[in-house]
Design a protein around this nucleic acid. Structure first.
Lengths: 285, 285
DNA sequence: GCCATCAGTATAGTCCATATACAGTTCCCG
DNA sequence: CGGGAACTGTATATGGACTATACTGATGGC
């Protein structure tokens, strides 16, 4: 169910730009276009054989190009003009495919999320599967760090729901209530994303020149009186960058990225807690 | 150590705008101004009795005004022009106090973080203190939801370090290694922030008109074949909004906000896992 | 062959961040 | 006490962003 369409045009299913300019203005939809949700779930090609010239691009092409720019130069480098330039069209023509930049960014996020890993084949218990899921998500963020800075309003795209589904499926029969399953799934998603964000920030600080590595910053201001614990940890070298632990793999091909140690530790303890929780419940009844 | 200064001017300590226009351009600092770090740790008033008119504003005033705008209308509403308008000055005059909008946003984030809670007074073990810390941080995010969307590059402001210190102090003597302490602290920070982000997104979707509530979105697309678990949960009503669970408290005074159930569940299991971890280690020797 | 439909474009409006130059104010120092 | 250095706030201008609007052609059904 990948969007490998050649001519998927959201305009057909939901309508985008106002038609002729001679029409009254009461035709504008209230929200200024389709909702993000409608756009992300847009479907189907334009019915073959309708009047007018064939479109030269596709939604997917626009989204992919934007992703390529974000991968290379960050989310801030993604502008309608940049995307248009890469596609050799004028900026305005993009609006034939994408209702607004906001919609584009949401589509970028969903598209970059990709398909979740197939976890049925993973040998071992649910614990291993959960870890595999988290690691895979972590990998997506490593491959597309801009995802952690993009402004997305809701996780309701097809790929995002597929990730959610995959995790819930793993958690389904381990002895949790429905509410607990959802809580845990949200927690895991949030924790992975939140920690990924922090980690890439720390990594960027260690690499870019106009930022300052965390340990260095601490050395400058972490006075033992005001920050005793931080001071102690810094003195012990805990914040010295552990040689590549914070590496961001170059390019977008970071498939097999190892889970970052900070994530792994918290995740292990969390899983252990869940194990105890369900074991206790099983015992009680 | 709160920035209640009346005339704190970062220009004194680090220099900001180029001086006269007649000078050569080789004076521009490489990064285009002071680093975020230097700016956040700017200190001290301008030495009393220096030539030139007294400044009419202060850094803190500018930052607070920006925060007020963000609280009211979101981070996107914060522009130099808006801030200037509120302060009844021209946009350019803000640059006497703030090197760039980026710096302003970072300062907003640190300022809005506020001081961490005093945890020494909290009765109970480290578990209770950790929960209190997380709840307090959660409260900050509820009070200033824009913090979850603001682009901050590094957690190195004074307040942010204070929060980090407070958490590490709690974790200091419970039987973890230094590396584990840091991992756990980062994990907790990331998890809280990540889940807060997701939760406010879900809450916003339930409230704003141009967004669609999660349950509704699911109902539209979650076919049992493609999303079996999601479907089942939805049918069971698990995604029906549990009456106010996702409320965002109005205004910025959300001090005593209750921790959101999704967060609490994950946190409890995590803490339990840590307990087991340190207990096992203690037993081994 | 008419014409509704549609793709791509050109233009322009509005907002944004900010570089640059300048006018007016204040205090130090001679 | 007066000149000059330092400093604040402003005016102006540049370049970029998103996108509304109106247009030019191209296409295919009737």
């Amino acid at each position: 169910m990948d969007y490998t369409d050649g001519y998927t045009l959201y305009t057909v299913s939901v309508g985008c730009q106002r038609k002729g300019g001679t029409m009254g203005s009461e035709q504008t939809p209230p929200g200024g276009g389709p909702s993000t949700f409608e756009f992300l779930w847009r479907e189907g090609d334009r019915p073959r054989s309708s009047p007018g010239p064939r479109p030269g691009l596709s939604v997917t092409q626009v989204v992919m190009t934007a992703i390529a720019i974000a991968d290379a130069d960050g989310i801030d480098a993604v502008s309608m003009q940049q995307v248009a330039k890469r596609l050799q069209v004028t900026p305005m023509s993009l609006y034939r495919y994408v209702p607004s930049k906001k919609h584009l960014v949401e589509a970028m996020f969903d598209e970059a999320s990709g398909a979740p890993p197939g976890l049925d084949a993973v040998p071992g218990g649910w614990q291993v599967r959960v870890e595999a899921w988290v690691t895979a998500l972590w990998g997506r963020y490593q491959a597309h760090p801009w995802m952690l800075r993009a402004q997305v309003s809701q996780p309701i795209g097809p790929h995002q729901l597929a990730w959610f589904e995959a995790l819930l499926a793993v958690l389904k029969d381990i002895g949790l209530t429905y509410e607990e399953m959802v809580s845990l799934a949200l927690f895991l998603t949030g924790a992975t994303q939140g920690l990924a964000r922090i980690s890439t920030d720390l990594a960027r600080a260690a690499g870019e020149d106009d930022l300052i590595p965390f340990g260095e910053a601490l050395a400058a201001v972490a006075h033992p009186d005001r920050f005793p614990t931080l001071s102690a940890l810094r003195s012990a070298g805990t914040f010295d960058i552990p040689a590549g632990a914070y590496d961001i793999p170059a390019g977008a091909a970071g498939g097999a990225t190892s889970t970052e140690p900070n994530l792994k530790f918290g995740l292990r303890q969390l899983i252990e807690g869940i194990e105890a929780h369900v074991a206790a419940r099983a015992e009680r009844g």
